[in-house]
């Protein structure tokens, strides 16, 4: 863990969300016995080194009508995979895009792109946009629709006893 004890306490105090009060960082500070400026400075420092990706809202896709999500997977020539992956990741309907190892013979795909839409037809239209973008560098693709959420927990640092500097990471949300 690249966090000192104070950073950890700030992560624990904010990982479920910011309070809805005029001075949210001051409220967190007072609950931790710190100054407001220290909370703001440390969050800014964590943001600068990538520990905090952003501060903002996570929309609920389901509540906002985006009820279909397809994990599109692509078998892209290795030499071109980085460049094409960056282009796919830039599409505004792609939420996550990763290069991963293949698992032959069952799994020939190396590029993963999560696509969201209001229904499967919309996801399918978006998939076709990726087909055109990848062109002949792509040898095959598939779309895996989720049929059920079996488990979903956000990131959770386990609260540990005083003096224990190790955090347990529960997941990326």
């Amino acid at each position: 863990m690249n966090l000192d004890g104070t950073d950890r306490r700030i992560v624990e105090a904010t990982q479920s969300g910011l309070p809805f009060v005029a001075q949210p960082y001051a409220e967190i500070a007072s609950s931790l016995g710190l100054e407001e400026t220290e909370i703001i400075d440390r969050l800014a420092a964590m943001q600068a080194r990538g520990v905090v990706r952003r501060i903002g809202v996570a929309p609920n896709h389901y509540a906002l009508g985006m009820t279909s999500n397809g994990m599109t997977v692509w078998d892209v020539e290795d030499e071109m995979a980085s460049e094409l992956g960056a282009q796919v990741g830039r599409l505004d309907f792609v939420s996550h895009c990763y290069l991963r190892p293949r698992a032959l013979p069952l799994w020939p795909y190396n590029l993963f792109a999560m696509v969201h839409g209001s229904d499967q037809r919309e996801v399918e239209e978006k998939r076709r946009v990726i087909v055109s973008l990848l062109g002949p560098a792509c040898r095959g693709n598939d779309t895996l629709y989720s049929t059920r959420i079996l488990k979903k927990t956000g990131l959770r640092l386990a609260r540990k006893g005083a003096g224990d500097s190790n955090a347990t990471v529960r997941g990326e949300s």
């Binding site: 992560v11 904010t14 990982q15 479920s16 969300g17 910011l18 969050l43 964590m46 943001q47 990538g50 520990v51 905090v52 990706r53 952003r54 501060i55 903002g56 809202v57 996570a58 929309p59 609920n60 509540a63 906002l64 956000g154 990131l155 990326e172 949300s173």
Partner: peptide
């Protein structure tokens, strides 16, 4: 309608 509001940690 939003699942979370606050910092997102990597």
């Amino acid at each position: 309608a939003i699942t979370r509001f606050g910092p997102f940690f990597d």
